[in-house]
Simulated scan of single mutants.
Amino acid sequence: MDIYAASLPGCPGLGAKHMRGLISYFHTAEDVWKASDEEIENSRLITGKRKSAFLAWRRETDPVAVAEKLYTAGIRCCTWEQDEYPALLRTTSNPPAVLFYKGCLPDHEKLVSIVGSRKCTSYGLQTAERFGKKLAEQGVVIISGGARGIDSAAHTGALSGKGITVVIAACGLDRVYPPENRQLFDRIVENGGALISEYPPGTPPLGRQFPARNRIIAGMSRGVVVVEAAERSGSLITADFALEEGRDVFAVPGSIYYPSCMGTNLLIRHGAICCTSFKDVLSEYGWCPEEGEKKTSFRQPMTVEEETVYQYCTLGEEVSSEDILQQSGFSVARLTMVLLSLQLKGYIQEVGTGRYMVMVD
């Protein structure tokens, strides 16, 4: 471990750009740390309060103690110049100078992020988990932010697909945020994935750090799949970062009646790739399985009655059998048979007693 590189991010106000500038100018993080105050001044890379804060930080900080703290917590680090640093992220306009991580940094070509709302619908949760699982089964590494809602569902899906998934945190890796995801994060590392952050241990999850975190999610990915996002959403910030870096943005269409879907529908209107199946992502990059590996999978066609009931199930997040009964004019016995047939054919699923929603491919 480069104990000097590990010590730099803790300095207040010293951002990724300044760290990269200093390391490039002095050649190594150790040289930055051991440069004289006059040499730092003459470099003119940091000035004013930022320079004063850095010089004070060097005097007060013991790199050996920093390294020991990281080792005890099971945290490693690397700089953007080292081989283990994620290759796609290195090519972005503002890559973190130093990454802290637990687990194994991904060394794969198939990298896709799945992001979305914390306050999402059951449709969104099902979709994110389904996409995560099916993409992971095809060897795609799933990247997300470890947050509640869509992020957690995507990570969980990747694990159920026996794949690798990566969490990009907006705090130090000695903290668990959200706290209820401790077991999920442990499983991710145990199954070959990673927890990654540009923030040193001890950094709390402050609001301003989440947009900065989103640039890493986008930067590590070939494409970003936005499953569900409101009109003002951090997921749209991730999409913007992706577009700025020339990465693809996929958006899963949602109900026009739900505020949590307004952002994704807007993305589609503005040119994002409309994504109605995980297969759309695989197809975009030519990652579809070979012909011999494909499984024959098809649904039996719907009858006229089934099509009528199915349409009611597509109007919102979920619908009750009572609502369908009132609107369709079917008898209870007939509706029961149609709903059962639609479930057997794989078009809908029961998500609660007498409540149904469309199956996601």
Score class of each variant (00 low, 15 high):
Val226Pro: 04
Val226Gln: 03
Val226His: 08
Val226Asp: 02
Val227Glu: 14
Glu228Tyr: 02
Ala229Leu: 10
Ala229Trp: 06
Ala229Pro: 03
Ala230Leu: 05
Ala230Cys: 04
Ala230Thr: 03
Ala230Arg: 03
Glu231Trp: 02
Glu231Lys: 08
Glu231Val: 02
Arg232Val: 09
Arg232Asn: 14
Gly234Trp: 03
Ser235Arg: 07
Leu236Cys: 11
Leu236Ala: 02
Ile237Ala: 06
Ile237Cys: 01
Thr238Met: 10
Thr238Ser: 14
Ala239Trp: 00
Ala239Cys: 00
Ala239Asn: 04
Asp240Ser: 15
Asp240Trp: 06
Asp240Tyr: 11
Asp240Ala: 15
Phe241Cys: 10
Phe241Ser: 01
Ala242Ile: 10
Leu243Trp: 03
Leu243Asp: 01
Leu243Cys: 13
Glu244Lys: 15
Glu244Gly: 09
Glu244His: 13
Glu245Gln: 15
Gly246Ile: 01
Gly246Thr: 02
Gly246His: 03
Arg247Cys: 07
Arg247Ile: 05
Arg247Ser: 07
Asp248Lys: 10
Asp248Ile: 13
Val249Arg: 06
Val249Leu: 04
Val249Trp: 04
Ala251Arg: 11
Gly254Trp: 09
Gly254Leu: 12
Gly254Lys: 13
Gly254Glu: 13
Ile256Glu: 13
Ile256Ala: 12
Ile256Ser: 13
Ile256Gly: 09
Tyr257Gly: 05
Tyr257Lys: 15
Tyr258Lys: 08
Tyr258Ile: 00
Pro259Ala: 05
Pro259Trp: 02
Ser260Ile: 01
Cys261Met: 01
Cys261Leu: 00
Met262Ile: 01
Met262Ala: 12
Gly263Leu: 06
Gly263Met: 05
